[in-house]
Write a protein that binds this DNA or RNA. Structure first.
Length: 425
DNA sequence: TCTGGGGTCCTAGGACCC
DNA sequence: TCTGGGGTCCTAGGACCC
């Protein structure tokens, strides 16, 4: 019996979450903004129908949104993260394998029944998710990941929100693949689609039938994989267990440009603490730190700078990472530059289970144990209470460069106070 | 004035070794 | 004048994803 690959995603996930938690905007046109209220990153279907585009800077559409009475929300990742966990837990119960691919997307597998029809299974799953989580999902089914993505696209765009499509039971797929433009295929980006178009290849059927020699010469194994997946030969496997992180990056844009080392130090300190606590949460250690900062990428005298430090001994300790990071910050800082963004990347991550306990004399070992205990205490307090209850001195924020979140709803599924009140008449 | 943030994979080329 | 060849490891950067 053959195995079908399923791709499930939540429709307009961030917008749907906001509508779920605030009944007053249910069924209304809303948009959600990126960090720092920079770009429009999600729209409810109502807002999309009104012609609001995706990924555009907010300031360009501020007036239009007001005129059309479209509600605006700053992003609330705590809410989306919690909703995502609930969704994935539910999906796990109803699929065989499940790969959590992103905050709002999963791949899964399921055996095809004797009559080959998965429509009723999918329909029931959609209803169950809507009933339990309160957000709509779409389901695409096919023989491979790329085909299941295409199925999902057909469910949404070609079959006008039917919610489910199964390309796996269609023998001759040409009719559908002909309608999929190359830049809509998973794995084909700007560069590759331009290259393909130059060679007269404009849709998924033509890419499936491209000469292997030609695609391999230009795109190697990556190109061949996409071609094979379109043919129905699975090359990209389902990964149930998330592979260990290879790097952790924490970066933010500032509300206003900064130009002093003091402010940059504050920002970096804050990001260091977030990054190192993530590291500890995943039980990992890092042995290389990169600190970077940039001015506005759209300005004439764009300036960016970064510096990396390799550590002799991998660590997850906030104090050690902070000390190294601040000395790197000093290196990359240049006066009279209007910095609008900075960040830290921790790389060369390794599991804490194989920590190297050498090179310490007894005094250092004692000191290290103290630092580890301190991290644990801070992590626990911040976990139990609100984030940033406890922090380090250098990260205390005096000035107002912290990212804008002017339109935050302050509603959440994780604090009791913000559970919506429902009045029954 | 105002343009997000966090990832992975692959490849080419340099450094180094025998 | 003539200056090997093959292997591994690492890194930076490109391309792509949500």
């Amino acid at each position: 019996m053959s195995k079908a690959i399923i791709q499930i995603d939540a429709n307009n996930f961030y917008a749907s979450c906001e509508q779920m938690i605030d009944p007053s905007i249910k069924g209304k046109a809303i948009v959600v903004l990126s960090n720092n209220d920079g770009c429009i990153i999600a729209r409810s279907s109502e807002a999309r129908k009104m012609g609001i585009p995706m990924g555009q800077p907010y300031y360009k559409f501020k007036n239009k949104l007001k005129q059309l009475n479209i509600k605006v929300r700053s992003s609330n990742y705590e809410l989306y993260g919690d909703m995502s966990n609930r969704l994935m837990e539910l999906l796990k119960k109803h699929c065989e394998e499940l790969e959590i691919y992103s905050i709002d997307e999963a791949f899964a597998t399921i055996k095809r029944p004797k009559d080959k029809c998965l429509y009723h299974w999918g329909k029931d799953l959609r209803a169950l998710v809507y009933q339990n989580i309160g957000i709509p999902i779409s389901i695409g089914i096919g023989e491979t990941k790329v085909l299941s993505k295409i199925s999902n696209h057909i469910a949404k765009k070609i079959h006008k929100n039917s919610g489910i499509f199964d390309i796996g039971i269609i023998e001759n797929k040409d009719h559908y693949l002909n309608q999929i433009k190359v830049d809509q295929i998973w794995g084909v980006g700007k560069r590759m689609s331009a290259w393909l178009k130059d060679r007269g290849i404009t849709n998924a059927k033509e890419l499936r039938d491209i000469s292997s020699v030609q695609i391999r010469a230009q795109y190697g194994i990556v190109g061949i994989r996409i071609k094979n997946e379109l043919k129905g030969n699975s090359c990209i496997t389902i990964k149930e267990k998330p592979p260990a992180r290879k790097e952790i990056c924490v970066s933010r844009s500032f509300a206003y440009p900064i130009d002093s080392l003091e402010e940059l130090n504050q920002a970096i300190s804050q990001y260091v603490l977030i990054a190192s606590s993530k590291l500890r949460k995943h039980n990992q250690l890092s042995s290389a730190i990169t600190i970077f900062t940039t001015t506005n990428i759209y300005s004439k005298d764009f300036y960016k700078s970064e510096a990396t430090k390799k550590l002799k001994i991998a660590t997850s300790n906030s104090a050690i990472i902070l000390k190294q990071s601040l000395s790197l910050t000093k290196k990359i800082f240049k006066p009279y530059k209007n910095l609008i963004k900075a960040g830290i990347i921790l790389h060369k991550l390794q599991s804490n289970n194989y920590k190297q306990n050498i090179l310490f004399n007894e005094g250092n070992r004692q000191k290290e144990l103290h630092l580890e205990r301190l991290d644990k205490i801070i992590d626990n307090i911040n976990k139990r209470n609100k984030k940033n209850t406890l922090n380090w001195g250098s990260s205390i924020i005096k000035k107002d460069w912290t990212p804008r979140r002017d339109n935050l709803s302050y509603l959440s599924t994780t604090t009791l106070e913000s559970i919506p009140t429902v009045f029954a008449n």
